[in-house]
């Protein structure tokens, strides 16, 4: 995979995965192919995500939109306030473009459609982080 560039000299990228589905969380964890990417936490809803973000100071967050308790849109809004420099990749199966666009308006950096291939995920991460 050519997206996994030589980044050995750099500080590892800290990734926080936010999705209410176990399967998707594991899928993202398993699929990423970067040597210097470290999964610092996984959250099942927005509240957990914000807590973990405070604790782990991630560089990159993959974010689902439809989640219980606190949804992705709200979580993005607060996350950007909390850590303006964090990169947010929305990973969602939302067919409603208006909500997707809103997520970007609130500060997400990119959008990846579910279902996604390993290649798409890695390319998206590479685009955002390297």
């Amino acid at each position: 995979m050519d997206t996994a560039k030589d980044t050995s000299a750099r500080r590892p990228v800290k990734l926080l995965i936010v999705d209410d589905s176990n399967i998707v969380r594991r899928r993202i964890e398993r699929s990423q192919q970067f040597d210097d990417l470290e999964v610092v936490g996984t959250a099942a809803n927005g509240i957990e995500a914000l807590e973990l973000a405070r604790k782990t100071d991630p560089d990159l967050v993959t974010m689902d939109l439809t989640m219980p308790q606190m949804d992705g849109i709200e979580c993005i809004t607060q996350l950007v306030k909390l850590k303006p420099e964090v990169r947010i990749l929305v990973i969602s199966a939302l067919s409603d473009k208006a909500t997707a666009v809103e997520a970007m308006e609130r500060g997400a950096n990119g959008f990846l459609d579910k279902p996604f291939t390993d290649r798409q995920l890695n390319e998206a991460i590479a685009e955002l982080m390297y």
């Binding site: 208006a98 970007m104 950096n109 990119g110 955002l128």
Partner: peptide, 22 residues
């Protein structure tokens, strides 16, 4: 219109917003 506005901003990555193009 909102989608296009995102392009004027700095956060959004052009390549990562194709799928939400209305």
């Amino acid at each position: 219109t909102k989608f296009i506005k995102l392009l004027w901003g700095e956060r959004a990555h052009e390549n990562l917003m194709k799928s939400i193009n209305p």
